[in-house]
């Protein structure tokens, strides 16, 4: 779930149950997505990340956490592919510290 929202996301429901149009501003884009993807985007909007986001999604969609995690990974990849989410660079691994809390010099 290492993503952030594209700019200017807004949603409008269509007359077909469970389908939405989603708009972004930079660049201007219109796409059709389903209610599950809208929920995921809204959870991102609310600031949830990681396990918290997965747990909330599972609760709202009445799924177990494992299923929710699998579904979210799939949805997030699709939404990123469509330009609605931007993948963030993976966080750097924690640097090794000496006992005194001084970073250990890394060998080239």
């Amino acid at each position: 779930m290492n993503y952030k929202l594209a700019e200017g996301i807004q949603y409008r429901p269509l007359s077909i149950r469970g389908r939405f149009l989603v708009f972004t501003t930079t660049p201007v884009r219109v796409l059709q997505i389903d209610a599950g993807s809208v929920l995921l985007l809204k959870l991102f909007e609310s600031g949830l990340i990681g396990d918290e986001l997965v747990a909330r999604y599972a609760q709202l969609r009445k799924k177990d956490v494992l299923d929710a995690r699998r579904e979210l990974a799939h949805r997030a990849r699709d939404l990123a592919g469509a330009g609605l989410l931007e993948e963030l660079p993976a966080p750097a691994p924690p640097r090794a510290l000496s006992r005194q809390g001084i970073p250990v010099r890394e060998e080239a």
């Binding site: 409008r12 149009l21 708009f23």
Partner: peptide, 20 residues
């Protein structure tokens, strides 16, 4: 369904107007 299509067209253009 023409009414649904026309209504969805309006939804699309309203959203697009806001985005643009």
């Amino acid at each position: 369904d023409a009414a649904a299509l026309l209504s969805d067209r309006d939804v699309l253009y309203s959203g697009a107007a806001r985005a643009t």
